[in-house]
Amino acid sequence: MRWWKWTAIILIAVLACGYGALSYMMGGPRDVYGFLRYALPQWRDGKLKVGDTAPNVRLLALDGQTTFHLSDRIGQRPLVLVFGSYT
């Protein structure tokens, strides 16, 4: 068997073992796929740092119509800004 066939076999075996280990740690192969497909591309540490001016983004109120800027909520006291979703 040529060297490249052995290389391919070893590479596939390593990838399979890695996927298996991740599946074990994350709960199942579907979770590994979900992590690689959806989470990894969206995880961004970003360039903001302490001392930077907070981006003055426009946000939507819960009525779905009213908009306001983050700066509207800044100025009187420290603002704890919490990002998240339901799921």
Binding site: A39, Q42, W43, R44, D45, G46, K47, L48, K49, V50, G51, D52, T53, A54, P55, N56, V57, L70, S71, I74, G75, Q76, R77, P78, L79, V80, L81, V82, F83, G84, S85
Partner: peptide, 18 residues
């Protein structure tokens, strides 16, 4: 803008600084 997904917390002071 805040690289927030999936969840993250910032605190912004009265001058608008992080």
């Amino acid at each position: 803008a805040y690289s927030a997904w999936p969840e993250r917390i910032y605190i912004i002071d009265e001058q608008g600084k992080i």
